[in-house]
Structure formats: structure tokens, C-alpha cells
Design a protein around this nucleic acid. Structure first.
Lengths: 183, 183
DNA sequence: GTCTATACTGAGATAGAC
DNA sequence: GTCTATCTCAGTATAGAC
């Protein structure tokens, strides 16, 4: 059994998703997850501050990628155009990982306490986006408004794409931004 | 000690807010809240499914009011105009209760786990608004998009108004909807 | 790695309103 | 009598302290 922290971390994440899907989130104990991953319960809490967090590492990476994409966008783009560009840039992450992200999303949708954590993470993410937009010289209120509306689109588009992947994410994003302009 | 459930419920809510503000959310136990309200801990959990929920009854009422306002709006209004109208109609609730809602909001802002619950409640609320808009014949995707962007404005405006109440909520709402149009 | 506080649950008994 | 709010008791799991 390797003692590399990263390895144990991934085993914990895999075990958690598998067990949650099998028995449901609240009928799975952290002890069971740890056992299946070959570590002690204490190790679970060393890697993740609470039981839910084991499913949300991908969102941290997403935040980093989006922040970078916004910082690198051409200066003459409008706030919404910057966001649209950033979203398009991270879209491949989802399309490449549908076999992981879809079951994960299904689990989250049917588990209120996980849904709550996800919504909260998306809220924090929109806060991060707002800060990134402000760094480009956009005034605070507009940055917040753009970031929050942008995240609304982001969540909505992913949701639609999970349900019907026959259209590409890029396509969904384009249409959604056009729709928002019309409203 | 009266047996009316409503009375105990209100005592629990009052005790909870008072104690949370005094000692902080996580240094207050459900047993202490129950004791201060003159009931047992078990009774706390009969009224509220978890410790956080004791602070969120007002949001349920808000959802009802908004739903009704949307249903009653004139048929020729655009989705965003319907939302703007509904928000303006519920604004007085906040302005009349600033002495309650401001300390509550401050507590929520400085307590991550409460912030998480609030964000999640607002997400659920936007879902409710989307359904209300669909009932007016607006197509699903546009209804969702309008509802989420609308909630973004709602949260952002309330936040700004809590920080600076020198302008009216009506004023904040008008300006925010105009700003969104420009983005 | 061990120990403990506390959030939360379940089941059965009691008390008051009707 | 029914119904509902509450209490009592016993327990489990998470998370944090040591």
C-alpha cells in the first residue's frame, strides 16, 4: 500500500464516489470510505475538511483555469465577451471527462446537502470571477453583475449539456450568451 | 408553558439569533438554544431539520410573495420586466425590517456554513422563479436564464443596500436592471 | 493516532387541545 | 376517543481537540 499522499487522496475520492452512488451519500460513512481506500478514517479528514469536500476538488482547478483565462484575454473585449471566451476555453475539460463528471453530477443533484455545497462553490467561483474582472479595470458593481450573470449561464449550460450532449458545450455557450443579450 | 407550536418556534428563532450573535454560530449548541427557549433539544429538531434552518424561515415567505407577484403581473411584460416588478413589490419587506435583517445578514456573512445555506436557498429561489416564469408561457431555457440573472441582481442589490442604505432598494433595483441591459 | 463534543435520529411515553 | 406538541432515553457519525 503506497504511502504517497496524492495516491491515497485519489483512492479516497474514487471510493467515495463509488460508495455514494451505490448506497447513497448519507448511508455511507467516512469510515467505510477510508476502509475501501485502505487508510484510516483520520486520514480522510486530513485530506478533506469534511465529508462533502471529497467530491469538489475539480471545482478548485476550474477556478484556477478560469482566472487565468480571464487575465489573459485581449484588453478590448467587453466583460461578457471575456467570460464567454473563458468559458469556451475550459469547456474541453468537461467534454473530456463526461464519464466521470456525469455520474458525479447525478449524485449531487439527488443529494440536497451536496447540491447545497455545489451551489455555494459556484457562488464563490462567481466572486473569484468578479475579482478577475475588476483587475481588468471594470468597476466593482458591473464586475459583480457580469460575474454573477456569467455564472448563471455557466451553471445552466452545463446542466443542459449533461441532459443532452448531442450539441457541443461551445454551441450551448454561444446560444446562451445571445439569449441573455435579448432579455 | 403554552403548547402552541408556533410560540415555541418563535422563541427558538429568537434565542438562536441572540445566542449566535453573542457567542458565534459554532460556539452555540442546539441544547443551549433549546434551553433558552424553554424546550428540550429534541424539540428544536422537530421544528427545524438542522441547526442552520432556524434562521431561514423568512426566505420561505419571500419565495411565496415573489411567486405571487410574478403570477399577477400584466401579460405583456418581458421576463426581466416581470422580475423587476416583483422585486420592487417585495422591497418594502426588507426596508421595514432592517433592524432584524441587517444583524441576521451580518451573522450569515461572517459564518461560512450559514453563507453556504443562504447561497443554496437563493439558488432554490431562482428555480422557483423560473417555474413561475414558465407558467407565463416563457420557454424553459429563457425562463431559467432570466430567473438566474434576476436572482444575481437581487442578491447583489440587497448586498449593496445592506452596506449603504442611503439609496432606496427601488433605486438600486432600477439601476441594476439597466446595468445588466448594457452588459 | 486517540478521545470527545455535539449535531442529529429513532422510538416510545406523556400531556394538553379538540 | 384522536391528534399533535413535547419529553425522555439511547444511540450514531462527523469533526475537532489533544
Amino acid at each position: 500500500m503506497p504511502r504517497s499522499g496524492e495516491d491515497a487522496r485519489r483512492r479516497l475520492q474514487d471510493a467515495a464516489l463509488a460508495l455514494f452512488r451505490e448506497r447513497g451519500y448519507d448511508h455511507t460513512t467516512t469510515a467505510e470510505i477510508a476502509a475501501q481506500a485502505g487508510v484510516t478514517e483520520r486520514t480522510f479528514f486530513r485530506h478533506f475538511p469534511d465529508k462533502r469536500e471529497v467530491l469538489f476538488e475539480s471545482q478548485e482547478k476550474l477556478a484556477t483555469a478560469l482566472t487565468q483565462a480571464i487575465a489573459e484575454a485581449p484588453q478590448d473585449l467587453s466583460p461578457m465577451a471575456v467570460l464567454q471566451r473563458a468559458f469556451q476555453q475550459v469547456a474541453p475539460r468537461f467534454e473530456a471527462n463526461r464519464s466521470y463528471s456525469l455520474p458525479r453530477q447525478e449524485l449531487i443533484e439527488r443529494t440536497p446537502i451536496l447540491k447545497e455545497r455545489e451551489t455555494s462553490k459556484l457562488g464563490a467561483l462567481s466572486q473569484t470571477l468578479a475579482v478577475s474582472l475588476e483587475r481588468r479595470g471594470i468597476d466593482g458593481f458591473r464586475a459583480q453583475l457580469a460575474a454573477r450573470s456569467g455564472m448563471a449561464i455557466f451553471a445552466l449550460v452545463l446542466d443542459a449539456w449533461f441532459k443532452d450532449p448531442s450539441r457541443s458545450l461551445a454551441d450551448y455557450f454561444s446560444r446562451a450568451f445571445v439569449e441573455l443579450g435579448r432579455l
